[in-house]
């Protein structure tokens, strides 16, 4: 068996491309997720989208349409509740997203025929990734880069100092909604390969690794997608050869890279990532 043997299969080539793109997109969006301390939102949102995915499978609605609508609605609700601050953001996320996840589980229990696709959503699967899905994920990547490019300074200001950004004329609410939508779309289009239960790790780990090696926001936006893409690509090859799920292989590799960087960068790296690592 050679290292490149799996590339003879179309399903693997598609899965490989989606995993690489997914890693890059999650790395890019993840920079904002970790710097805004939104890690829990990413985690919750992926669980919430699972409810939409389960409902779509049961109702026979297109996965991206059903789970997408569900995810966008959840993202906007989470953003609104968090901004209003009347109840704690973590409590609001806990209620909204776990209720949605529980609904997905209940639907899975009642309608057994949906079980297979629901398991694929939970743990990720490289099987059945179509060329159309590769194109869709590539489009999400282009969209994320375009949004971040166009709103780079506004997003940076709203992330670093929302109160002053607001006074300076940046529509902070709109920037937050844009980020939440970008996060929801990223999770929706990449969770099939990584899985609902593991996607938040792919959002967080490359960004934290990037933070440990650089003090520059602009460089973080380059390093995190590169780390994510490398973990996605190499993780897929490991997944095939070790016969383990794609999500598990990608996340374990990302965790390994994190440990190596954490050790090599020492106190400087830990200082840079202060507030992210305790």
């Amino acid at each position: 068996m050679t290292l490149f043997e799996p590339f003879q299969f179309e399903f693997f080539r598609n899965g490989f491309m989606v995993a690489t793109l997914a890693g890059a997109i999650c790395g890019l969006v993840g920079v904002y997720v970790v710097l805004r301390s939104m890690s829990y939102i990413g985690h919750g949102l992926s669980h919430s989208i699972f409810g939409g995915a389960a409902a779509s499978a049961v109702l026979g609605v297109n996965f991206y349409l059903g789970a997408g609508m569900w995810g966008l609605l959840s993202a906007l609700m989470i953003g609104r509740v968090a901004r209003r601050g009347k109840i704690g953001a973590d409590a609001a996320i806990g209620v909204i997203t776990t209720a949605s996840f529980a609904l997905g589980l209940a639907l899975s229990n009642v309608f057994g025929q949906a079980k297979r696709s629901i398991e694929a959503v939970l743990f990720g699967s490289i099987l059945g990734v179509t060329t159309l899905e590769v194109i869709a994920v590539a489009c999400v990547g282009v969209l994320a880069v375009a949004i971040i490019g166009a709103f780079y300074r506004k997003l940076l200001f709203a992330t670093f100092d929302p109160e002053v950004a607001d006074v300076t004329g940046v529509n902070v609410g709109r920037m937050e909604a844009l980020l939440m939508l970008m996060l929801a779309v990223t999770i929706l289009f990449t969770m099939k390969i990584v899985g609902v239960l593991l996607i938040s790790a792919l959002l967080v780990t490359p960004a934290v690794i990037a933070r440990m090696v650089t003090n520059s926001f602009a460089r973080m936006l380059v390093i995190a997608p590169l780390v994510g893409a490398a973990c996605g690509a190499i993780g897929m090859v490991i997944s095939y050869h070790a016969n383990i799920s794609s999500g598990a292989a990608i996340i374990l590799l990302a965790a390994f890279v994190f440990i190596v960087v954490y050790t090599v960068t020492g106190a400087r790296g830990r200082g840079n990532a202060g507030g992210m690592i305790h």
Partner: peptide
């Protein structure tokens, strides 16, 4: 201020023009 945020002095000052500019 979040002093661990990865940002340089000039990046902080340049934020002031954020509302006007779309170029990164």
């Amino acid at each position: 201020v979040n002093w661990n945020f990865p940002i340089t002095v000039s990046e902080v000052v340049l934020m002031a023009g954020a509302a006007k500019w779309y170029r990164p």
